[in-house]
Design a protein around this nucleic acid. Structure first.
Lengths: 346, 346
DNA sequence: TTGTAAGCGTTATCAA
DNA sequence: TTGATAACGCTTACAA
């Protein structure tokens, strides 16, 4: 509907030439402060409701105002949405628009997405991963790019600060008097960069904090698949054979669920009988009873930061340093950790 | 990088004129089968890797190849992603690209999104809601539009077929010999179109199937907030005071979780002691132990269907009928319903 | 059957 | 300080 208002409408309205309007509206440094006709132009533009046509401008300048977002699987994930929101909002404030595509982990789909985006003259590429792994990217032909929640050769990336999160989780427990801890989820598999580039850091943070507190885990349950059934069994081991344990760290919320199930089966109460602390903060975490204290993966913030950096690079032309930007992982305190005021604790 | 291949490249390569190339490539009916130069043109296009520039084409034709997706809250939801995937994939096969925006339920954000999309000459609008409610939309100026998982005045919509789902859930239980049922979640609040336009249908389906089976619920627990704590208490009532009940229907998975918790507290096993059936099939449903049998809200399919209909309208120019298109809700059989082979059945 | 030319809305160069 | 003018890549009458 509503006919478009173009430069020539403003030209007609003001009696000036199209090129003049354009120059004024673009506030070009070259033609220093045209004068006060600028005033007239701006007023007319405002009055008529002028908005430049991105297609026309793009045709001329080669800049489309489009950022491509390519994700491996928007579908499965419980987090994607926060990341998407973060990046859309940031893009919008810079008058960029986000075009979405999904690869479903298939090479051909990736190629296709890249092709479409190239054809559309996308000015930047943002790759969003649903698990923080190392991925291979085809040559991007020099387009500014950034990876959120993952890493790729030669491309900058935004990651959660897992090392810090690991430390803080342990410190949180220690500060509350816990000294007999158990852990569920460590496994070598997660150390493979193709599986995860962050779990290693998380573990390092956990181990460092344990060492600093002069502690060692009473028991560790290995787990390759971080699902409830696995930790259910694991928690059973701990609860049955290590009654001295006062707190269990599960490396994700789904495994925390399993711990809850095992505790409930045994008539044990959380946190009265055993405290639980986990990672990720997916929706599930707040459904549990009591809701579990967990480290929140900052998807929204990562999305926003990545888009910010990407746009900086797009407008300045400066390349994004091929480094890892870390975003803090906040501790979300809920009801699953109790304070121990026992003997032996200062 | 890679310099763009344009029509004039092909022209130069074939010795033909640009307009000829364009005509051939667009397969225009007007100039009937140009001949076998078509061959040459296509070959050259292929060889050089030609792809039309959407900006240039759009500038000329007014068609941008963009569909705008506007969602109230991509963020919070556990489903959004499937819907997004459905619509992206469908758009892609028609060479359309999806631009995302989010309103966060705020009027100004909606206006802003609409404005951006209008400026970009979006050819169609797709509104995605995270709960199936009635919403108010500002005047759209005649642009083709459709609502997924919701309804709006004068706009076509795609909704899950809840009436059918309600019937099937009950029938599933009845077919397995259950005759003493309880329900958790009915409430008048959900009958308000501003809250839900589908729960009423779901209830109608449930009630109809119950009536057809000659049954009435042994007990019903009302619930306005469909959260685990609420159904936890509700299930306690049922389990403690209505031991004759063999199956509980929870109106969503989160409430099923509450039922599980109550059962576990009482040492009751699912499905041996009591069967559970729920709705939605969010991730949570498969984490439960045993995973709960539930009715899967078909977000992906709804997204795909909506995009399909929208594009049909966009290319044909025919308006989308202002009606409700229903997508079936499949029953996902998991382990929470047992077969009763008791006396009195059959 | 093929080619010429105008125009979509902008920007940028260069004169006036 | 302002204004013609060409060009971006494509489509489409219309002419050859």
């Amino acid at each position: 509907m509503g006919k478009r208002v173009t430069l020539s409408d403003i030209a007609r309205h003001t009696g000036l030439a199209i090129s003049t309007i354009s120059t004024v509206l673009n506030g070009h440094a070259g033609t220093r402060i045209p004068s006060d006709t600028a005033q007239r132009v701006h007023e007319a533009a405002e009055l008529l409701g002028y908005a430049p046509d991105p297609a026309a401008r793009g045709l001329r300048t080669g800049r489309s105002g489009i950022i491509g977002f390519i994700s491996d699987e928007v579908t499965v994930t419980r987090y994607a949405s926060a990341m998407i929101r973060g990046l859309i909002d940031t893009a919008d404030t810079a008058d960029y628009v986000v075009v979405m595509s999904e690869t479903d982990h298939r090479e051909e789909r990736l190629e296709r997405a890249l092709e479409v985006l190239r054809t559309r003259r996308s000015e930047g590429l943002l790759f969003g991963l649903m698990s923080a792994r190392r991925i291979d990217l085809p040559p991007l032909g020099g387009a500014p790019a950034i990876v959120v929640n993952g890493v790729a050769e030669g491309v900058g990336s935004v990651l959660p600060d897992e090392e810090r999160a690991g430390r803080e989780a342990v410190e949180h427990l220690v500060r509350r008097g816990h000294r007999r801890l158990a852990l569920i989820g460590r496994s070598d598999v997660h150390l493979d960069p193709a599986v995860s580039v962050t779990i290693g850091d998380r573990m390092a943070g956990i181990d460092a904090a344990m060492a600093e507190a002069g502690l060692a885990f009473e028991h560790e349950v290995e787990a390759v698949y971080w699902e409830p059934e696995v930790s259910h069994r694991g928690a059973a081991e701990i609860l049955d054979h290590h009654p001295e344990v006062t707190a269990i760290i599960a490396l994700n919320d789904r495994m925390a669920l399993g711990v809850y199930q095992a505790a409930q089966e045994r008539g044990l109460s959380i946190p009265a009988d055993v405290s639980v602390m986990s990672f990720d903060d997916e929706q599930l975490a707040s459904y549990l009873d009591p809701p579990v204290t967990t480290m929140r993966l900052p998807y929204l913030e990562m999305g926003a930061l990545a888009m910010e950096r990407l746009l900086e690079s797009v407008v300045s032309g400066a390349p994004i340093p091929d480094s890892r930007m870390l975003v803090p992982i906040p501790l979300i305190e809920r009801g699953s950790v109790r304070e121990i005021r026992g003997p032996g604790t200062a």
